[in-house]
Amino acid sequence: MSPRPPLPPFTEQTARQKVQAAEDAWNTRDPERVALAYTQDTRWRNRDVFLRGRPQVVEFLRAKWERELDYRLRKELWAWTADRISVRFEYEWHDAGGAWWRSYGNEQWEFAADGLMRRRYASINDVRIAAGDLRLPGHDHGRPTS
């Protein structure tokens, strides 16, 4: 696979670019596209789920977005080093019963020299919200836009 810029070592500017690229990709809700940002043998912890490899990531994301409907995400750079980035994030979604949620969390990322993420560790908490409390772009007063 070809390199995925920006590449480490990161500066503040390139770390911000990497975070924005991740936010943009995740908001597509396309598991195959999102998985291309990770190494073939990537290692993940997402809440209490441990994954290894792109195929498991794709399967996980497919199930996630079947459950978390009208998902909208915002990520924010928290800190960075030469090959690591830490972000805080929040996302909004609703379940099949129509209940809306806002999920808050932190992720720790580690990158390979080619710019692919080899490790992603996420801690996430969910808070139930009223549809009128939605605040992320892409939601229209609790009515899904997609």
Rank of each mutant, 00 (worst) to 15 (best):
Trp65Ile: 05
Arg102Asn: 09
Tyr71Asn: 09
Arg4Asn: 12
Arg88Tyr: 13
Pro144Phe: 06
Arg29Lys: 14
Thr39Glu: 06
Pro8Ser: 05
Phe60Val: 01
Gly132Leu: 07
Arg45Ser: 09
Phe10Cys: 07
Tyr38Gly: 00
Leu77Gln: 08
Ala21Ser: 13
Ala79Phe: 04
Ser2Val: 08
Trp44Phe: 15
Arg16Tyr: 04
Leu51Ser: 06
Pro137Asp: 02
His139Gln: 05
Glu12Ile: 00
Glu68Asn: 03
Glu90Gln: 15
Arg29Trp: 08
Asp83Leu: 03
Ala82Phe: 12
His94Pro: 10
Val127Glu: 14
Val58Gln: 05
Asp83His: 13
Phe10Asp: 08
Ala25Ser: 14
Pro31His: 07
Tyr91Phe: 15
Arg119Gly: 00
Gly97Lys: 13
Gln108Phe: 14
Phe10Glu: 08
Leu36Cys: 07
Met117Arg: 02
Glu66Ile: 02
Gly97Asp: 15
Val34Thr: 10
Ala130Thr: 05
Ala131Lys: 14
Arg45Gln: 15
Gln108Asp: 12
Arg74Asn: 04
Glu68Cys: 01
Leu77Thr: 08
Leu69Arg: 15
Trp93Ile: 00
Thr81Lys: 01
Leu77Lys: 05
Asp70Gln: 11
Val19Gly: 09
Gly115Tyr: 07
Ala122Trp: 01
Pro8Phe: 09
Ala63Thr: 06
Arg88Trp: 13
Val87Glu: 14
Ala122Asp: 06
Asp133Ala: 15
Asp95Arg: 11
Asn106Met: 09
Ala15Lys: 07
Glu32Phe: 09
Leu134Phe: 01
Thr81Val: 02
Ala122Glu: 09
Gln13Cys: 03
Arg45Gly: 00
Arg54Glu: 05
Gln17Ser: 08
Ile129Cys: 05
Trp78Pro: 00
Val49Asp: 13
Gly105Ile: 02
Ser146Tyr: 14
Ala112Gln: 10
Arg47Ala: 11
Asn106Ser: 09
Glu92Ser: 10
Asn27Thr: 10
Gly138Leu: 03
Thr14Asp: 07
Arg120Lys: 07
Leu51Ala: 07
Ala21Arg: 10
Gly115Pro: 09
Arg62Leu: 03
Gly98Gln: 08
Glu76Gly: 02
Val58Leu: 03
Glu32Val: 12
Glu32Lys: 13
Trp65Pro: 03
Asp83Val: 04
Thr11Glu: 08
Leu136Cys: 04
Arg67Asp: 10
Asp126Met: 01
Trp101Asp: 00
Trp100Glu: 00
Gln108Cys: 00
Asn106Tyr: 12
Ala35Arg: 06
Asp83Ala: 11
Val49Arg: 15
Leu136Asp: 03
Trp109Val: 00
Gln56Pro: 04
Trp93Asn: 10
Lys75Tyr: 14
Pro5Asn: 10
Asn27Pro: 11
Lys64Glu: 05
Asp95Gln: 07
Glu110Ser: 11
Asp114Val: 02
Trp80Asn: 03
Glu76Lys: 12
Leu69Val: 05
